[in-house]
């Protein structure tokens, strides 16, 4: 099996960085869609860019908050594909800002490569656990649980941990 380009520990740090990058880019796309479309040669697609911004923010929060960032990283890879498709459309000859679209496309390809490197490095190498039957045999008790119920009833609960009679069930007869 081929080894990932970076160690899982560094991939986790990279995933956190990508999370913050997502949020930063998303906020820019939502709050300043005109500037983003101007910079990327996508005039007239402000609504689309703002919706991409919402996607970026959601993905960023997911990356920063989940213990396993892998599904969110795959989400980013999917988002990269959308971005690439959108920017590729901006390369058509009729677009006079196609050079900007081309530069943005190169940048997205670079980030997509980072996303892929990160998600592949985090691919878990999970050995199968013991059969569940093995855990079902681990009672720690010398007899079946039903027979052990109350076996420690000789224990006297200390006064500071006793429940007052009024809070006990069943209620004591008055």
């Amino acid at each position: 099996m081929s080894r990932p380009v970076i160690a899982p520990k560094h991939a986790r740090a990279l995933a956190q960085g990508l999370g913050w990058f997502s949020i930063g880019l998303g906020v820019a796309e939502v709050l300043m869609p005109h500037r983003v479309t101007r910079a990327t040669g996508l005039h007239g697609h402000e609504r689309l860019v703002a919706s991409y911004g919402v996607r970026e923010i959601a993905t960023g929060i997911g990356l920063l908050t989940s213990r396993d960032p892998t599904p969110w990283l795959w989400g980013r890879v999917g988002g990269d594909a959308l971005d690439i498709g959108t920017l590729a459309a901006g390369l058509r000859p009729a677009n006079r800002d196609r050079e900007r679209s081309g530069a943005a496309l190169l940048a997205v390809l670079g980030v997509a490569a980072l996303d892929l490197v990160c998600v592949l490095a985090l691919k878990p190498s999970r050995r199968p656990p013991l059969p569940l039957a093995d855990y079902r045999r681990r009672s720690g008790l010398p007899q079946p649980p039903g027979a052990m119920r109350g076996a420690a009833s000789d224990f006297v609960v200390p006064a500071d941990m006793r429940t007052p009679p009024a809070l006990r069930w069943p209620a004591e007869a008055r």
């Binding site: 569940l132 045999r137 681990r138 009672s139 720690g140 008790l141 649980p145 052990m148 119920r149």
Partner: peptide, 8 residues
């Protein structure tokens, strides 16, 4: 959960 069941 299997180990919890084993404990009753």
């Amino acid at each position: 959960l299997a180990m919890a069941e084993a404990g009753g």
